[in-house]
Amino acid sequence: MRDLKEIEDLLRQSRLPDTDAPKSKGAIWHRLIKEQRRRRRLPRLFWFPPWVWALLSLLMLAISVFIMVTTR
């Protein structure tokens, strides 16, 4: 059975050479810019971070429970 050093060497030898990927770079940059423009157009409401939504949900839940208890 091969020892681990051999497996390490095999991995190093199998490394795919780096590519500059010039073709995709420009396309992806344009895709990012387009996406950012689209995001900027979204209403401010959707910009809240997830924890704000979580907090709001908990608050709603608390209010619902409070109403349920007090209206019995």
Binding site: P17, D18, T19, D20, A21, P22, K23
Partner: peptide
């Protein structure tokens, strides 16, 4: 095929 077309390598 993509790498052959590119022919350029960052390293």
């Amino acid at each position: 095929s993509e790498q052959l077309q590119d022919g350029t390598h960052a390293d």
